[in-house]
């Protein structure tokens, strides 16, 4: 009924090809190391934890041995993550509209549309992601995308471990479901 709306929704259904996306990701990966350092994300969760503990008066940074290696200043790597939030937002609004939703449709098809159930899994998932990433020293960005590209042995070990356990867990969660 509205040509403009139809066009924008049709555009939203199409992803950028993984070929172009992969080449761009590789060039960005190179640009980061050529300018300042390897792309990474998980360290910044610990940076924010340090700030939050300061707000709560716990002074995590000076009392905890792990946090003593985590900076409290805003550096290049922190700004990469700030940029990711802005870049994701801009790409979404330029190509279509914001995708405000609580429960992914694939999740609904297997576990129903209960918000508390999905939020509990999303929270537990986030908890395990960052507990694991900080124990290993990086995540899909720092140890896999840029870690393996830098030829770090740590990246290869981490990639095998996350793929093995991710594949087993996803197949268990979605067992007896074909689509």
């Amino acid at each position: 009924m509205n040509g403009h709306l139809e066009d924008s929704s049709r555009q939203q259904q199409r992803w950028m090809s993984w070929v172009y996306g992969g080449i761009l990701l590789g060039l960005l990966n190179t640009f980061a190391v050529a300018t300042y350092g390897a792309l990474g994300v998980s360290r910044n969760y610990a940076v924010v934890d340090g700030w939050l503990s300061g707000l709560l008066g716990l002074d995590f940074a000076s009392t905890n041995s792990y946090m003593s290696g985590i900076p409290s200043a805003i550096d290049w790597l922190f700004m990469v993550n700030v940029g990711m939030v802005i870049g994701g937002f801009l790409a979404t609004v330029i190509k279509g509209k914001l995708n405000v939703r609580s429960v992914p449709r694939l999740w609904v098809s297997r576990f129903g549309d209960s918000k508390p159930k999905r939020f509990a899994a999303a929270f537990a998932g986030g908890f395990l992601l960052l507990f694991g990433a900080r124990l290993a020293g990086g995540c899909t960005s720092g140890l896999v995308l840029s870690g393996i590209a830098q030829l770090a042995l740590a990246g290869f070990v981490f990639a095998v471990a996350i793929m093995a356990s991710g594949i087993v867990t996803a197949r268990l969660l979605y067992r007896r479901q074909s689509s």
């Binding site: 994300v41 992914p104 999303a122 694991g132």
Partner: peptide, 26 residues
């Protein structure tokens, strides 16, 4: 760490970086 991460990856459906981007989408 990787085995724990993988379980979280499948449960959340995001990794630490893609969760930031997905959050920015709403």
């Amino acid at each position: 760490g990787g085995l724990v991460f993988g379980v979280g990856w499948a449960l959340a459906g995001y990794c630490p970086g893609t969760a930031l981007v997905a959050m920015s989408e709403g």
